[in-house]
């Protein structure tokens, strides 16, 4: 049996306050825990914590759960929560902030494909300036679920047949300068 208790020493309320300082997260503390975000979210039924509970976790400083939950990686960025929130909290932006924090701390759920996709996408665009959907799907499947190639075959073939998937990678002329802009800023 697992004990269900949270000790206050595990909490880092100051961490929550840091999150609230990020662009788009400023109304975090206005949450009245009404659950509109969860109710309107098309993905909430697959989440381990509903978006409302994630907000509560951040506010109370339970950063481990907030960062390692599946919720943030199930957010499809449909902005329904943000536009419906009665307190005008940009829940989508808060999810983005948690994703970044989770990647930075390397605490996202392993082998969960969404963060892998995000990372591969990031690399591709940085390299070429554009995304290659073909290459992206290839890399993603390779890294998370090699057997997935079999199940995806039908869709892949359909897309190929209708000329909608091309292995060609487009690269922008000014890729070098773009890469420079995307380089993380030097640590002072």
């Amino acid at each position: 049996m697992e004990r269900q208790i949270r000790y206050q020493r595990e909490a880092r309320p100051a961490w929550g306050a840091e999150i609230a300082k990020l662009p788009g997260c400023e109304r975090l503390y206005s949450c009245i825990q009404c659950g509109t975000c969860s109710g309107t979210c098309p993905m909430s039924l697959y989440m381990d914590y509903t978006p409302r509970r994630v907000i509560a976790l951040i506010r109370e400083g339970f950063y481990k759960d907030a960062l390692s939950c599946r919720t943030i990686w199930l957010c499809a960025s449909c902005y329904s929560c943000s536009s419906r929130c009665p307190q005008d909290i940009k829940v989508t932006d808060i999810m983005y902030a948690l994703k970044r924090e989770a990647i930075k701390r390397k605490v996202y759920p392993s082998r969960f494909p969404t963060p892998v996709l995000a990372r591969e996408f990031y690399r591709l665009v940085k390299m070429f300036g554009r995304n290659s959907e073909f290459l992206l799907v290839f890399l993603l499947t390779l890294k998370t679920n090699p057997l997935g190639f079999l199940t995806m075959a039908r869709t892949g073939i359909a897309l190929l047949l209708t000329g909608r998937l091309s292995p060609k990678v487009e690269m922008i002329r000014d890729a070098a300068r773009l890469r420079k802009a995307l380089e993380p800023k030097e640590v002072a």
Partner: peptide, 11 residues
């Protein structure tokens, strides 16, 4: 009616 039952924690 679609709602999160916040006491149960589910939609």
């Amino acid at each position: 009616i679609r709602v999160e039952d916040t006491l149960l924690g589910t939609v």
